[in-house]
């Protein structure tokens, strides 16, 4: 069937992808048109409208009046909104930092031995990711209730004095929601890191052990640097989840008790659909978006690939060929 002349094949192989691409091909835009149409109409255009609305005082019914930066100033001066941003930072610890650390410690331990039942473990660890967040919220509401499993367990080990209605207590509601987030994310982190670990060349560990490296040194010298791409993606996923986070809070505490678990997304919903302050809600949404882009950007910069003075302290470990 192929009538390909050998000479053409050589040229093609040398030119790689370049030769298949002709110069700028305007007709290629036709292929992009349907996808871009959906993206522009239902994502880009709404974002532009949000940015525009954020400079107005608008209740959705009467004409909007321009107010300049006032909605943005409110975010940084109103104590309630400042608190919401602070709560987001607390959740960042529980939703992103903690799961990544748990995942790293366990992955480090797993890198040293042959794991039995790895496929099953992976499948179980991933379950929190596939459940609807509403289902997650409903089940954790029961576990964290005054007569729930967490309190029963505390009583069992003699810590009955610590029991409380975790989601109903001003002091414990935010960390309790944080731990639900940790639960949702740690399995994802572990599964990602496990996938990274199988690509590490085993002989590196053998060599490290011959040189007398202990488990800790082995972890910092080999496992951690090799997992850089997985750590980076785990942080992107967990940070965006932490800062977006509406579903779990809405279906457990609605921001309460009081405002102890309020976060920007809850105020965005309430300002827009209950208080009819669309300008304020839009400004908050824009700030949230910039915050996510900023934090993701900073974290990406921190875990970026080439830095000779970085964690590994030497040449990065080579990977098994053809495993990706």
């Amino acid at each position: 069937m192929t009538t390909l002349a050998p000479a053409t094949a050589v040229v093609a192989a040398r030119g790689r992808r370049r030769s298949f691409r002709t110069s700028h091909s305007w007709s290629s835009l036709l292929y992009l048109l349907p996808a871009l149409a959906f993206f522009v109409v239902f994502v880009i255009y709404p974002i532009i409208v949000s940015v525009q609305t954020s400079f107005y005082d608008y209740d959705g019914l009467t004409p909007a009046t321009p107010v300049g930066m006032q909605n943005y100033l409110a975010i940084f001066t109103k104590p309630a909104l400042q608190d919401a941003l602070k709560h987001s930072m607390v959740l960042l610890f529980f939703y992103a930092a903690l799961p990544v650390c748990i995942g790293l410690v366990l992955a480090g331990a797993m890198s040293r031995i042959r794991i039995y039942g790895l496929t099953l473990v992976r499948a179980l660890l991933f379950i929190p990711q596939v459940l609807s967040s509403v289902v997650v919220a409903v089940s954790w509401r029961d576990l964290l209730a005054a007569d729930g499993l967490i309190n029963e367990a505390l009583r069992l080990v003699g810590l009955g004095a610590m029991t409380t209605s975790w989601l109903g207590d001003f002091n414990t509601a935010l960390p309790a929601i944080g731990l639900v987030g940790t639960w949702v994310e740690y399995g994802l982190c572990m599964v990602l890191f496990l996938a990274g670990i199988v690509t590490i060349d085993r002989s590196l560990y053998e060599a490290a052990r011959l040189d007398g490296a202990g488990p800790v040194r082995e972890f910092f010298a080999i496992t951690l640097p090799a997992l850089r791409p997985q750590i980076s993606i785990a942080l992107i996923l967990t940070i965006t989840f932490a800062l977006r986070n509406f579903d779990i809070i809405w279906n457990t505490t609605r921001g309460g008790p009081g405002t102890s678990t309020s976060v920007p997304s809850v105020y965005i919903y309430q300002d827009a659909f209950q208080n009819r302050m669309l300008g304020q809600a839009s400004a908050l949404a824009v700030v949230l978006t910039i915050l996510i882009l900023l934090i993701v950007g900073i974290v990406q910069w921190l875990v970026r690939e080439p830095d000779p003075s970085g964690l590994g302290g030497g040449t990065p470990p080579t990977r098994k060929r053809g495993h990706r």
């Binding site: 992808r17 298949f20 691409r21 002709t22 110069s23 700028h24 091909s25 305007w26 290629s28 835009l29 292929y31 992009l32 871009l36 993206f39 239902f42 994502v43 880009i44 255009y45 709404p46 974002i47 409208v49 949000s50 609305t53 992107i236 965006t240 800062l243 977006r244 509406f246 920007p264 997304s265 965005i268 919903y269 827009a272 669309l278 809600a281 839009s282 949404a285 824009v286 949230l288 978006t289 996510i292 882009l293 993701v296």
Partner: peptide
């Protein structure tokens, strides 16, 4: 596979789309 005019810009914008919070689109939607 093709030399798309503005392809790099399109990819960059789509990349930002991966981390956008839905909150910023829902009110106009």
């Amino acid at each position: 596979t093709m030399q798309v005019p503005g392809g790099r810009v399109i990819l960059l914008v789509l990349l930002l789309g991966l981390v956008l919070p839905y909150e910023v689109t829902v009110l106009p939607l």
